[in-house]
Write a protein that binds this DNA or RNA. Structure first.
Length: 492
RNA sequence: CGGGAAGUAGCGCAGCCCGGUAGCGCACCUGGUUUGGGACCAGGGGGUCGCAGGUUCGAAUCCUGUCUUCCCGACCA
């Protein structure tokens, strides 16, 4: 009763906050815009991280670590990148505090300890990494370099929201160097595919792969590829990006290599990243008014078992059977928690694990034991069934798969129902203010028109889908000719 | 940075207008009864009321300043 969740209909933003806070994923902290990721939330992130890390390694990448601080002179080397991030950088200017002579017990920044050169706290690491790569690359034999780093970055956002936009966040950033343009483009697309694979098959969130317009492109990139997801309120969320950086950073940091003909060439680059923001996407894509709904493949706890008993004698009997079940499930690679904490009662536990989105709940009492069954409840549909204890672990294993598939299908159905064509301005605005979702519409291809539409409606072009159908039409705003539809949406 | 709201016990809040013994619910501790959808009874512990000044015999309450957080917007993954 103490943990009521605001309904989606009542206040979608508050619902989201309630889920994150009451689902024990994260807390606000004493630091503006920065959150504490709690053990349960971090366990979720670890699961996501482990899967992605394995995928990166399977595609030939290695992990490394680069400094948190970037000297300003390095940071500003790639002009567009620097400009793009300049407004949101935290900057270290001093390296020492001292006691305040006028205010006992307080500290002040020691004016004597000013740095010769300011250090930028990384908002992204291209600069420090390409400065490093300069020393690693001389010949085509040194290429490709396929490196990933798991790190925290800081972007001093005006307005923050738990997981979706925090001043400090955790992410991975891949930074690769290649001898040819073709190879770099191939890498960019390959990593986009890895992201789409992960988000769809592990997080159960369907995505649209596409390319950003120049307006929405990463600062310093030639092309930004992205995966776009749809949330339950009809707003889009960019779930991951993969950038083809051309030779921009190689030129900025003077990174050249000798090819087979001993000719000097600039190196081709990519970078790609996903962040803890994915957790926000996960929460908003699947959950309901009773709490989180987590996909089994990355849920910190896949199965929770709740004993129902009166007295120690009954408890002992149930324990015995449960321990057997736990061993079986663990043997099958299922993450299971037996919650036999006697301080909370079954009803409380049911509500608690629903809030936390645990996919499968097993309740076992003496009554069940006598009938050789257990009560199995699935979080996604809230269905409850009595299932025979014989072969129960195999049943649960299968159920987890079914749940994974079901929540993906449900999210996909919602997403697909929320891609709507608009053929003129009135339709476009009507859809944005009504149904929401992605709106497929013609656009004249200019940045001016895109800006104007954003100004008028707050909708942006989320992407030009890959393998887009070419079709003649006219721009919904200007009426100028267009050769393809693009996806618009209001976005997080 | 513009607009709004809020800082009082671990959490959620009331009290403030009209100054006079700091309160409620949840959580916590002890004992008991309970346990198939967020248990109940009895007893108990815990707060320099965000911070700094001022007015006053007396300030959570009035005045001034200040800090912080959240929500909405512009910026953005």
């Amino acid at each position: 009763m103490s943990k009521e969740i605001t309904s989606r209909a009542q206040d979608y933003s508050q619902w989201y906050n309630d889920l994150v806070l009451k689902g024990s994923l994260a807390d606000y902290s004493a630091v503006r815009g920065c959150m504490v990721i709690k053990p349960y939330g971090f366990a979720l992130w670890e699961n996501m991280r482990d899967v992605l890390d394995r995928m990166f390694k399977e595609t030939g990448h290695q992990n490394a670590y680069f400094p948190l601080f970037i000297p300003k002179s390095l940071f500003e080397a790639e002009e567009k990148n620097a400009e793009g991030f300049a407004k949101e950088c935290a900057v270290v200017t001093h390296y020492r505090l001292k006691t305040d002579p006028n205010n006992k017990g307080k500290l002040i920044v020691d004016p004597e300890a000013k740095l010769e050169e300011e250090l930028v706290v990384r908002p992204t690491s291209e600069a420090i990494i390409w400065n490093t790569y300069k020393g690693w690359i001389q010949s085509y034999r040194d290429l490709p370099i396929l490196v990933n780093q798991w790190a925290n970055v800081v972007r001093w956002e005006m307005r923050t929201r738990l997981f979706l936009r925090t001043a400090e966040f955790l992410w991975q950033e891949g930074h690769t160097a290649h001898a040819t343009k073709e190879e770099a483009v191939e890498e960019t697309v390959k990593m986009l595919d890895v992201y789409a694979d992960f988000v769809e098959n592990w997080m159960a969130v369907p995505v649209i792969k596409g390319v950003k317009t120049p307006n929405e492109r990463f600062a310093g990139a030639e092309d930004t590829y992205c995966i776009e997801a749809m949330m339950q309120d009809g707003k889009a969320l960019q779930a991951g990006t993969s950038h083809f950086l051309g030779q921009n950073f190689a030129k900025a940091f003077d990174v050249k290599f000798s090819d087979k003909n001993n000719k000097l060439e600039y190196v081709w680059a990519t970078s790609w990243g996903v962040s803890t923001r994915l957790i926000g996407a996960l929460v908003m894509a699947h959950s309901d008014d009773d709490g989180l709904i987590l996909p089994p493949r990355i849920a910190p706890i896949q199965v929770v078992i709740v004993p129902i008993y009166k007295g120690e004698e009954q408890k002992a009997k149930i324990d015995e059977r449960v321990h057997q079940l736990v061993a079986e499930l663990k043997g099958m690679g299922v993450t299971v928690k037996y919650d036999d904490n006697d301080n909370t009662r079954p009803g409380w536990k049911f509500a608690e694990y629903e809030m936390k989105g645990v996919p499968v709940r097993v309740a076992l009492g003496l009554r069940d034991l006598e009938n050789n069954v257990a009560e199995i409840a699935r979080r996604d549909t809230k269905e409850k069934n009595s299932v025979s204890l014989d072969g129960l672990s195999a049943h649960i294993k299968q159920l987890l798969e079914d749940i994974q598939q079901n929540i993906f299908n449900k999210a996909k159905q919602y997403r697909d129902e929320h891609i709507t064509p608009a053929n003129n301005w009135d339709e476009f605005v009507g859809l944005l203010d009504g149904k929401g979702g992605f709106i497929s519409a013609h656009w004249d291809g200019t940045a001016e028109t895109e800006d104007k539409i954003k100004e008028l409606t707050k909708a942006t072009i989320r992407c030009i889908p890959l393998n887009n159908v070419q079709e003649e039409g006219v721009c919904i705003l200007t009426g100028k000719p267009s050769s393809q539809r693009v996806l618009f949406a209001r976005a997080y």
